[in-house]
Amino acid sequence: MGEFIIHDCTLLTRTSGVPPVFNLRELRERLATCGRNVLYHHFCETPLVPCFDNPDYSNDFAAWALMQLGDRVLAERLGIINPYIFPDLENLREQVLEVLDERLSEVHLVPSCQPGGEFFFTEAVTVVFDTGMRAASPDRLPEAIGKMSNGSIYYHFLEARRREPVGIDDFSAWLAGFAGQEAWCAALQTVDFSFFTLTELRDELVRLLQNGGAS
């Protein structure tokens, strides 16, 4: 197994061209047709966006449902969706539409926001580069992670799940190529990253690995 190549990434948000929405029905319509990158951005790229990470929900739709529509039921249902378990973004879209349709069938009045509270659909472009840094062997990984930028943590631990092998972070995928690293791999897969900022996530990964995989 070769050395771990440390990449970094930076993200820049852009408008998507999808008109903003004021109520739940419009949200359903736009989500049915918006680009996959829009969907991905609002579910997965929020940790890199310069905005306060919503402490309750890590995807933008759940946060909007709570804060602007005032619909706690919808926020709870959207907030629990883990975008990384879906093999394809279209499967994620189906699940989200299912939740919205269910909610629309329950409410007597379509939840709407106040003027100024509309949801703006955005997407992002990510620039990825090789940092030139390497972890030569598994025992060097904790130290290497400790020196990573937030962009590297995002790229290797979150965005990696979108790449082959799908659903697995880069650290686990690399460690799996070495004998005797099962405890670390298992520990990494138990990290509930939804409630960490990227800085906190980096510290947590280092802590886990330094403890030999014990939480």
């Binding site: 970094d8 930076t10 580069f129 030139g132 020196k147 937030n150 962009g151 800085t199």
Partner: peptide, 12 residues
């Protein structure tokens, strides 16, 4: 800011 922030800017 963290050293990694400076390093990332230099790399970019």
């Amino acid at each position: 800011v963290n050293e990694t922030v400076i390093s990332q800017l230099r790399q970019l």
